[in-house]
Amino acid sequence: MLMLDRRMLLRAGSTVVGAAALAPTAPALAHAPQVGKHAQPGFYRFKLGTIEITVVSDGTLAFPAETLWGDRADDARGLLTSTFQPSSPVGLQINTILVNTGDKLVLIDAGCGVDKFQNTNGRLLGNLASAGYAPGDIDMILFTHCHFDHLWGISDGKNASLLFPSAEFVASETEVAFWSDPELPGKVSAKQQPLVTQANLKLASPRLRLIKAGAEVAPGVTTFDTAGHTPGHMSVHISSGRQEMLLTGDVVVDTAISFQHPEWAFGFDLDVPRATKARIAFLDRAAADKTLVGSYHLPFPGFGHVVREGSGYRWLPADWQWTI
């Protein structure tokens, strides 16, 4: 066997290194480009007894902390930061709820509508289609209240024609009376945009049924009084057999502040003392009864439970279920 001494090995190694340095550089393997788009979950479905519940997202909202908590804005930002939530601006989900009782298809709240408020919302119709439904399938739209992000989605971008051709509209008589008042623009702040709300209520009026809080609007779907956020604000109790859940409306809007400090005024509450009382009563009920809660503005899909913690409460999100 030919034996190479150390000097020969070094010379051979140097030759290989030099040849490699002179050789053209091999191209790097291509990497996938960054997409840059975010796919927001559009719908989420599960069963509550024999009732099928589908959360259909209308997108998201964003506001400065000052808009949402006024003089408490600095405290709110601190609490949001400590719980790893965005605070500049503050983001809110829009979770409309579709209830299929087998006899009725009931949509609870209708979102903002397309091209009416912020470019991150107005997604209801597209996500409704993804969930397997068309606007004409909806038998009823129940409004928890008449703020823009709950009502405006019933009409087109010009607030000139309705988008749900077969739907009956159901709302609190107190709520509709308040928002229909001709003197309303001088009584509420411009951020409430009362004229657009009045235009949508006028469109809905031929098919609008007025109720009192406490009415059962469809089998297993019953409203209850949580006025304060608006004069006729209602939350919703849904039951099927031994299973039940509570829908918040705008009683709570954030997983930290609404629960740890339910006494803090929310910027869109029209009657702060009454809204605070309603918020605490709702949280007390949910915690005492251990009832599943569905929320309109909490992180999608917005389901969880409420537990008491110290002088406040804590939100425990429910795990996603992949079977139905």
Rank of each mutant, 00 (worst) to 15 (best):
A167N: 07
V272D: 04
V90L: 03
A26H: 12
R6A: 11
A110T: 00
K37I: 09
V196K: 13
M140S: 07
R279W: 01
D284F: 08
G310K: 05
H261T: 01
L316K: 15
S235A: 15
I138R: 07
K212P: 05
A287I: 05
P317W: 04
Q118T: 00
G228L: 09
A190Q: 14
D109A: 05
Q34M: 08
T83M: 03
L68F: 01
A256R: 09
P135V: 01
I138G: 01
H233T: 04
T323W: 06
S57Y: 04
A21N: 09
L201T: 03
L292V: 02
H305C: 08
R207E: 06
M245I: 03
L292E: 06
I238E: 05
P219L: 14
K37H: 13
V188S: 14
N200C: 15
E263Y: 02
G153N: 12
D5M: 08
P317Y: 05
G228E: 12
P194N: 08
V106P: 00
L208Y: 12
I51D: 06
L195T: 09
P33Y: 09
R308K: 14
D269W: 08
L270Q: 13
P194R: 10
G42M: 10
L246T: 01
A110K: 03
E66M: 08
A177N: 05
N200E: 11
A28K: 15
L80Q: 10
H38F: 14
S295D: 04
D284L: 07
V55Q: 09
A26M: 11
F300L: 09
T54E: 00
S311F: 02
N95T: 00
H31L: 15
M245N: 08
I141C: 06
K212D: 14
S240N: 05
V251G: 00
G232V: 01
A287G: 04
A30Q: 12
T81K: 15
P219W: 12
S180Y: 01
L22E: 08
A19E: 14
S295F: 02
R274W: 08
F164N: 11
N95L: 12
P41D: 15
L247E: 03
S57D: 04
S189P: 05
Q193L: 10
P194Q: 13
V16I: 06
K212H: 12
W322E: 12
E244D: 13
V35G: 10
S14E: 15
A76L: 06
W179E: 06
L22K: 13
T67C: 07
W69C: 11
N100K: 09
D284E: 14
A288R: 15
S311A: 14
Q85T: 02
V170H: 11
P299D: 11
T54P: 04
T222M: 10
S166V: 04
